[in-house]
């Protein structure tokens, strides 16, 4: 290696400049034209070594596409992407020694082999020395609570356990940089907690370890990440620490309102000073939850007076801290996920 010890950490873990990626989708019917999907548009991101960096965005935003380009699975259409100083296209081989990738929500692995055999195979494809490979596999099996399943055939495992095994495969090679594509997708609360804690500790354990994870759970991004890029329709809309992102929208002006027996929600539309407004119904309870992001406190009064006009009664009013979800709503104009507000 050319660099001396100090310089190595100065190289960005990831440096993406004007990156574009398009896909041609095949025409579904003979008459319909093949469409061009812009999965990534002029993306610029620099991630430093040692960071736990999150890509937050809804399904189809382009998160997986970016990860695929960075982990040398996919070539960019145009622009530049460097990983640990190496070009993803021309120097893929240099990159592969230093990275690993895990994508969640899938059941990968050779079903006929045991958990241990699967991991062992990959340790050998990474050229890990026998002793180290055995030690790391055993250690990670223990940490992930998979020790009792180590000699079970992978195909007998539940999806959640297979995902844990996949995560072990990723961390086992001790990468400098790991890509985690929706690592907790489809997992139960406990498993997600375990994996999040593991990721957090792993980054801290050694200086220079970097994580790039994607998620569409804003809590996950908020809790885990040092910095977050909000991505939608292939474009990076904002990139900062969760705290700074929240500062983009005024601290004190997020209002949660619960009202009963609402008849006409249009009473809440068009109030000046409301930056965004989302709602969800709980039909069985007859309660509607409203969430407003306001320019300033003065608008609260206007909202409260709109309640009787909508034919409903107030159940509760609450002023809340903004979340990354609110940031997303403000930037994009719609909700990140279509569930509760």
């Amino acid at each position: 290696m050319k660099q001396s010890g100090g310089d190595i950490l100065a190289i960005p873990a990831i440096e993406v400049k004007n990156l574009n990626r398009t896909f041609k989708t095949k025409a579904v019917k003979r008459k319909s034209k093949a469409e061009i999907v812009k999965a990534l548009q002029d993306v610029n991101i620099t991630i430093h070594q040692g960071e736990l960096f999150g890509l937050l965005g809804p399904n189809g935003a382009g998160k997986t596409t970016l990860i695929k380009i960075l982990c040398t699975l996919l070539l960019p259409s145009s622009g530049q992407a460097k990983v640990l100083g190496y070009d993803v296209d021309k120097e893929a081989h240099e990159i592969r020694h230093k990275i690993n990738m895990v994508s969640g929500g899938e059941t990968s692995g050779y079903g006929l082999l045991t958990v241990r055999e699967n991991l062992w195979l990959f340790s050998q494809l990474y050229g890990m020395p026998t002793k180290i490979a055995k030690k790391r596999i055993d250690y990670l099996l223990k940490v992930m609570g998979l020790e009792h399943k180590k000699d079970s055939k992978v195909r007998t495992l539940s999806t959640g356990l297979r995902q844990k095994a996949n995560i072990i495969r990723g961390f086992m090679t001790n990468p400098s940089l790991i890509f985690l594509d929706e690592p907790t997708l489809g997992l139960d609360v406990n498993a997600s907690r375990l994996i999040r804690d593991f990721i957090k500790n792993w980054v801290k354990e050694k200086p220079g370890r970097t994580v790039l994870l994607t998620t569409h759970y804003m809590m996950e991004a908020d809790e885990l990440c040092d910095r977050v890029a909000i991505i939608n329709d292939g474009k990076v809309l904002a990139c900062d620490t969760p705290a700074n992102l929240k500062k983009l929208i005024n601290q004190d002006t997020t209002i949660k309102l619960e009202i009963r027996q609402v008849q006409d929600l249009s009473a809440f539309e068009g109030i000046t000073g409301v930056r965004s407004f989302t709602h969800s119904h709980n039909i069985t309870a007859g309660i509607t939850k409203l969430k407003f992001i306001l320019d300033d406190d003065a608008t609260i009064a206007d909202i409260v007076t709109a309640v009787p006009k909508s034919g409903s009664k107030i159940v509760s009013v609450e002023k809340t801290e903004p979340t990354l979800e609110d940031v997303f709503v403000t930037l994009v104009g719609r909700s990140l996920v279509n569930n509760d507000i």
């Binding site: 040398t72 699975l73 990738m101 899938e106 990474y126 495969r169």
Partner: peptide, 18 residues
């Protein structure tokens, strides 16, 4: 089926040798 190709592909191993 096994969804392992991408992981083998991005490993430092040469896919050709694999």
């Amino acid at each position: 089926h096994f969804q392992t190709m991408k992981y083998i592909y991005i490993s430092p191993s040469n896919y050709f040798s694999y």
